[in-house]
């Protein structure tokens, strides 16, 4: 039983590390900041999530597991807000995403907040 838990937890941790590394590679490889946001969210969701779940299996039913779950919940609730704030900040300062059609570019420009667009 303990060995089975161990194996499951290591599968989770290795998976999490793999997603972290792919996300890190994406941070380097992808072309613009918006594409890199997606790579970062790879780290923020499954990378962190799988590692924490793996550690929970290691800790068993203790206070430690509850704390790990708390970290997981914090990161899950805060990371989209941070990502959205970052994207908004970039758009308001005329850093526009690389997209194919003029239609899409216009759609992005129209989302700028009024006070910034007026400047």
């Amino acid at each position: 039983m303990a060995a089975a838990l161990d194996i499951i937890s290591w599968i989770f941790i290795v998976g999490g590390i793999a997603f972290c590394l792919i996300g890190g590679y994406g941070l380097i490889k992808l072309k613009d900041v918006y594409a890199r946001l997606h790579a970062a969210s790879l780290i923020d969701t499954l990378g962190v999530g799988l590692i924490l779940v793996g550690l929970m299996f290691q800790a068993g039913l203790t206070l430690v597991t509850a704390k790990l779950a708390l970290i997981l919940v914090f990161i899950f609730f805060t990371s989209p807000t941070a990502t959205h704030a970052l994207a908004r900040a970039a758009i308001n300062h005329d850093v526009l995403p690389e997209v194919d059609t003029e239609d899409e570019r216009e759609m992005v420009r129209s989302t700028k907040t009024p006070s910034e667009a007026a400047k």
């Binding site: 969701t45 499954l46 908004r88």
Partner: peptide, 21 residues
């Protein structure tokens, strides 16, 4: 909007008039 952002591959960059960019 947060669910969209939390799902990798999509980031909501603006919410306005019942539409999300």
């Amino acid at each position: 909007a947060n669910s969209i952002t939390l799902t990798p591959g999509t980031v909501s960059i603006d919410v306005d008039n019942n539409y999300i960019t």
